[in-house]
């Protein structure tokens, strides 16, 4: 029985892979059916997962087993219910309170964390003697890091007209930005091809058995 379901799983995987790939030729009903099934399954999976792996262990179980020690969990529970009021037009305004709380808390937490990790620590990492490190490749890399950071920041300084020496520096900054965009595109291309490789390894290995999975 286990083998039957394993084989069935592979065949369903193959069917849906081809159904989704068929969109590359042109939009068609088979693709649409596969897409709708995927969306429906995902929504259903998330709904069940939220109940069994988030609400029951984090809210219902603690409240049932030790209400006195966990009554504070009623506060997020009430806020959650207030959020659901959004589903009804007449009571939709109630959801603004938990949303405001979430936004306020998130921005407070994130401001501090991002300031430390993405601003202070990143700036500190740029403040170095570029000529240390021994290897000339490392030295060039460190010089590029400092020049790229400075000129990149100057490009985003808009309170002074980009002309003369300032404009030239900003132009160097945009070249650095363009190179980084190119690198990002390269990584994106690699990631997408990797997904295709993953699917083909499934088709050629798990399904057809031409290659070892």
């Amino acid at each position: 029985m286990e083998h039957f379901f394993s084989v069935l799983g592979i065949w369903l995987g193959v069917l849906f892979t081809f159904a989704i790939f068929s969109f590359l030729y042109k939009d068609n009903p088979v693709y649409k059916v596969a897409e709708q099934i995927f969306v429906g399954l995902s929504a259903g999976y998330w709904f069940v997962y939220t109940i069994y792996f988030i609400l029951i262990p984090n809210l219902f179980d603690p409240l049932i087993n030790d209400f006195a020690g966990n009554w504070i969990k009623l506060i997020p529970a009430v806020l959650g219910i207030m959020m659901l009021m959004r589903l009804m037009p007449k009571t939709g305004w109630v959801s603004r309170f938990p949303i405001a709380l979430v936004i306020g808390t998130t921005s407070g937490v994130f401001f501090l964390r991002y300031l430390k990790s993405d601003v202070i620590n990143q700036l500190t990492a740029t403040m170095m003697n570029p000529f240390t490190g021994g290897d000339w490749v490392v030295i060039i890399g460190q010089i590029m890091l400092i020049v790229g950071t400075l000129t990149g920041v100057i490009y985003f300084y808009f309170s002074k007209k980009h002309e003369g020496a300032f404009g030239a520096t900003a132009k160097v900054g945009i070249y650095f930005l363009m190179i980084s965009f190119g690198a990002a595109f390269g990584y994106t291309a690699m990631a997408r091809i990797s997904l295709l490789i993953g699917r083909l390894q499934f088709l050629l290995g798990d399904w057809l058995g031409i290659i070892s999975p």
Binding site: S117, Q122, A191
Partner: peptide, 25 residues
Amino acid sequence: TGVSAPAVIPYVNQQQQLIGLLAGL
């Protein structure tokens, strides 16, 4: 993943926010 690598690589720095990084396939 390859898509998120360019945004994460800057953490591999002298501050050692990250010790190395495996990017994509």
